[in-house]
Computed example of a mutant assay.
Amino acid sequence: MSLKELEPQLLALSPTEKAQAIQLLAQSLSNTWKRIEKTPGVCGGEACIAKTRIPVWVLLNARRLGIGEAELLYDYPTLSAADLANAWAYAEAYPDEIEIAIKKNEED
């Protein structure tokens, strides 16, 4: 999608939504998603914890199924509590991306 295509949608946002969009764009520019990365050819290019093959969507889906953070950290010993916090923040910032990944992988 180009900026020209996106412009009418951005202008139609409420002031609060515009502020949220600005914050999201600023975060993506400043790389605040520490240890979250997308690597072509790794897990289908999905957002993963850096240097792992653990997608953010897997962690979020596990959380939704009732698996607590302590259990996730036990099940994935290479993860830290900070990794989980970054995964939750990323999932909150990109909910549509995460939902699409969950649905896509439920079909497989």
Rank of each mutant, 00 (worst) to 15 (best):
S14A: 10
A85G: 02
A81L: 04
E106R: 09
S2W: 08
Y90H: 09
L29P: 00
K34P: 00
I49A: 07
R64T: 03
V58T: 07
P55N: 05
A21T: 08
A93D: 11
K4R: 10
W57Y: 14
Q9W: 09
R35Q: 13
C48Q: 06
L13R: 07
A62G: 03
I67D: 01
K34H: 09
S30N: 13
G45E: 05
A101Q: 11
D75I: 00
K103H: 05
I49T: 08
V58L: 15
N86K: 10
E99I: 01
R64A: 11
A89S: 15
M1A: 12
I22D: 11
E5L: 14
A87P: 08
N31Y: 09
P95R: 11
A62D: 14
R63Q: 12
K51T: 01
A87S: 12
I100A: 12
L13T: 02
I100C: 04
R63L: 07
I98K: 03
A85T: 07
Y90T: 01
R63I: 01
Y74M: 13
K51W: 03
Q20E: 12
I54D: 12
Q27K: 13
L6S: 12
P40L: 05
L10N: 01
S14E: 08
Q23Y: 06
L24R: 12
E69F: 07
A26P: 00
A47S: 14
A82F: 04
E46N: 13
K51A: 04
I102V: 08
V58N: 06
A81Q: 09
Y74W: 10
R63T: 10
M1G: 15
I22S: 11
I49Y: 04
I22E: 14
S80V: 01
A21G: 06
P8H: 03
K103I: 00
K34D: 08
Q27L: 02
K38C: 09
M1L: 10
S30F: 09
L79Y: 06
